[in-house]
Amino acid sequence: MVISATRIDTLFGGACLVPPSRLAKMDMSTRPPLSPAEEDDEAALLARYAQGDAVAARRLTTALTPRLFGHALRVLGDHAEAEDVAQEAMLRLWRIAPAWRRGEAKVTTWLYRVVANLCTDRLRMRRSTRLDDIDEPADPAAHVEQGLQDAARADALQRALDALPHRQRQAVVLRHIDGLANPEIAVILDTGVEAVESLTARGKRALTQALIGQRDALGYDHDG
């Protein structure tokens, strides 16, 4: 069976359309976290999973779930929602496994795209239903006083990320935390490389503005 964009669209209700031809055109040479050999491993493991190999399922779960969960958590800022998104993305991977054609798409790119679309759906729903349900940001100075400066910095970064428009947030997280290259991010976000560069630049500027007033409280005047 051949994976076509139409086929995937049909399988997943159009929410996570992934044209393999576009994925195949990506330049993967600059993506730091995974080597081509590792990518091959993931596709090979997926093929083994499709043939009934339970060990392959465990290895894929261990290798991929933390990344997807981490990304979803950064973008959504909510543990429960991030868990649901990561589980749903992996479930879609399991279901598409028998029809997966190696060489046409990278497993991780396909998964990140599924996660990005699921996060976008949730952020849109949240924007329309939860405007009054946003927690007040905690005072970072309180953490510093308790000697939890690292936690305070992490919280501050997450709050600043949460305040970004969701496309900027996704682009910044994919680029600067997940460490993906701009061409791959462009495919994941279904946009052009220039648009990704613009999103990340604007996102970083907004983050800087959001954090600049907290530098003293976060200890950056002294150590960084």
Binding site: E83, A86, M90
Partner: peptide, 11 residues
């Protein structure tokens, strides 16, 4: 949960 899903839908 992910592993349980994998087992449930694995060919």
């Amino acid at each position: 949960r992910v592993l349980a899903d994998a087992e449930a839908v694995q060919p």
